[in-house]
Amino acid sequence: MKAVNITFKFQDGQPDQTHVAAEGESVLDVALNNDIQLQHNCGGVCGCSTCHVYILQGENDLPEISDKEEDFIDRAVDPRINSRLGCQCVMQGNADIVVLIPPQNFLGH
């Protein structure tokens, strides 16, 4: 697998950041490893909705959404068709990913 770039965009106006992700790393892993604030109340085990993100590009190179993940996304703030949980977006393909991180000023579920 080639190196995959994840570009993080932020709804709160921060400048975009692009980081390299290794196979098996999640969007949440890459965010935390690069000091990007992304809540993760359950510790990244698909047990809450706080690492909710929007996938703007590269969704076809991510694992298919599970029923459990979909249930938690329904509890997220402002879920959309391209909503995913960062902890479940594990790098497995060769396409670069673009992620929009919603504001992180909430208490989460």
Rank of each mutant, 00 (worst) to 15 (best):
M1R: 12
K2E: 10
A3P: 08
N5K: 15
T7V: 10
T7Q: 11
T7M: 08
F8K: 00
K9H: 15
K9Q: 15
F10W: 06
Q11I: 04
Q11A: 13
Q11Y: 03
D12C: 03
D12S: 09
G13E: 09
G13Q: 09
Q14H: 14
Q14R: 15
P15Y: 01
P15E: 14
P15R: 09
D16R: 07
D16A: 14
D16Y: 00
D16T: 11
D16G: 02
Q17Y: 00
Q17F: 06
T18M: 06
H19Q: 09
V20P: 04
A21S: 07
A21D: 02
G24N: 06
E25I: 11
V27K: 07
L28P: 02
D29M: 01
V30L: 08
V30G: 04
V30D: 05
A31R: 05
L32K: 15
L32W: 13
N33G: 02
N34Y: 06
D35C: 08
D35E: 15
I36E: 06
I36P: 03
L38D: 03
Q39D: 14
Q39Y: 03
N41E: 12
N41L: 15
C42M: 03
C42T: 07
G44L: 03
G44P: 05
C46M: 14
C46G: 01
C46D: 00
G47R: 02
G47N: 07
G47F: 06
G47S: 14
G47M: 10
C48M: 04
C48V: 04
S49A: 15
S49Q: 05
C51E: 06
C51P: 00
H52P: 03
V53T: 01
V53M: 02
I55L: 11
L56T: 09
Q57F: 08
Q57L: 06
E59H: 12
E59F: 07
D61E: 13
L62D: 03
E64A: 13
E64V: 11
I65P: 01
S66Q: 10
D67V: 08
K68Y: 09
E69Q: 10
E70Y: 10
E70H: 10
E70Q: 14
D71A: 10
D71W: 00
D71R: 10
F72S: 09
D74H: 01
V77A: 04
V77Y: 12
D78F: 00
R80D: 09
R80Q: 14
I81C: 02
I81S: 11
I81P: 04
N82K: 11
N82I: 13
S83R: 01
S83I: 05
S83V: 05
L85M: 13
G86P: 03
G86E: 04
Q88T: 11
Q88L: 06
C89T: 09
V90I: 15
M91C: 10
Q92T: 11
Q92W: 00
N94E: 14
N94G: 12
A95K: 14
A95S: 12
A95Y: 02
D96P: 08
D96A: 05
V98S: 09
V98K: 04
P102G: 10
P102A: 07
P103F: 01
P103L: 00
P103V: 07
P103R: 09
Q104N: 12
L107M: 12
L107A: 13
G108K: 09
G108N: 11
H109T: 12
H109P: 04
